[in-house]
Amino acid sequence: MPLSQDMTSDLEPGLLDALQHQVALFARRAEQTRLGGVGQVRNSMDRAAYLLLNRLDLEGPMGVKALAAGMGIDSSTVTRQVAPLVDTGLVKRTSHPEDGRAVVLQLSPRGQARLGEVRSSRRELMAQVTDGWTEEERESFCTLLTRFNSALSVRASGHQESDTPAS
C-alpha cells in the first residue's frame, strides 16, 4: 500500500528527502553516461535496445504482446523499438512454431554476439564504479536496487491501491 502524506509523517523527512535527491542524481548521471560501458562499446546501444535484447535472450522467442507485457510497456512502443533491431539484423522475425500465422521475435546470432559485447562492457563499468566495494556491499546494493525497481514497476503498472488513506 502506498504511503499517503499522513503516513510519511512517521518517517524521517530528511532521509526521504536525501533518498529522493540521490535517486534524481542517479537518474541524471545514468542518462548522462547511459551506463553504456567502457571502451569502444561505450554508449553504443541505447537503453531500450539493451532491455529488449536482454529480455529476448533470457526468456527466448516471443511475440510483441508478450514482450510488451513483460516489460510493462505498450505493444506499439515495442513494435517501434524492435523495428531498427530487425533492420540491423540483431532481431529476427520468425513464424510461431505452433501457429504459423503468428510472428515471434528472437535474437539473431548477430544480436547474441552484440549483446555479449555490450554486457561485457557494462560489466566492466560496474566493476570500475564499485571498485573498492566488498562483494557483500555489491550484493546488498544489487538486492536493494532490485527491490526498489520492483516497487517502482508495481506502482507504474497500476497494481497499487489508491494514494489516499482508507476511510
Rank of each mutant, 00 (worst) to 15 (best):
R138K: 11
L85E: 01
Q106Y: 00
Y50K: 02
A151S: 13
N149A: 15
M7I: 05
D17P: 01
P2L: 08
T79Q: 04
G132S: 03
V154R: 15
V154T: 14
R29Y: 10
L25C: 07
S108F: 01
Q81I: 03
T146E: 00
E59P: 05
S153K: 04
N54D: 14
R101C: 13
G14H: 10
G36P: 08
S75T: 13
M62V: 06
L25A: 03
F148Y: 09
T146Q: 04
M62W: 00
A18D: 10
P84M: 00
L125C: 03
V64C: 09
L107K: 11
F148E: 15
R29G: 04
G39L: 02
R122Q: 04
L51H: 00
A69D: 15
D46G: 11
S9I: 14
N54F: 02
E31T: 10
R138T: 01
L107V: 07
S121P: 03
D57A: 15
P84H: 02
M7H: 08
L53I: 12
V154N: 12
T79A: 06
D10K: 04
C142F: 14
C142S: 12
L152C: 11
P61E: 12
D74I: 03
L85G: 05
T164K: 00
S140K: 14
K92Q: 14
A102G: 01
E135G: 11
T146P: 00
V78T: 04
A24R: 03
E98A: 11
A156W: 01
A48D: 15
H21A: 09
I73K: 07
A166I: 07
A151E: 12
V118N: 06
R80H: 04
H96V: 11
N43R: 11
D87Y: 02
R55E: 15
E135R: 12
R80S: 06
Q81F: 02
E98M: 09
G111W: 08
A24N: 10
S153W: 02
S153T: 10
T130Y: 06
E12G: 04
G70I: 07
M1V: 10
C142D: 01
L152A: 13
F141W: 06
L15D: 09
K92Y: 06
E12A: 08
A30W: 09
T134V: 03
Q5V: 08
V154H: 13
R138A: 09
M45Y: 01
T77A: 11
K92I: 12
G70P: 02
L51M: 01
A30C: 06
D57G: 15
S150C: 13
L56C: 10
A102T: 05
G132L: 02
P61C: 15
L90R: 07
N54Y: 02
V118T: 06
T79E: 00
R93Y: 08
M71A: 09
D131R: 10
R28S: 11
A127W: 00
R80F: 01
Y50G: 13
V38T: 15
L125I: 07
H21Y: 05
P61I: 14
E117Q: 08
E139D: 15
F26A: 09
Q106G: 05
L115T: 12
L56S: 14
S44R: 11
V103G: 00
Q40F: 00
A166G: 07
L19V: 14
G37N: 03
N54H: 06
S157C: 09
S120F: 00
L107S: 08
A49Q: 06
Q106A: 05
N43D: 13
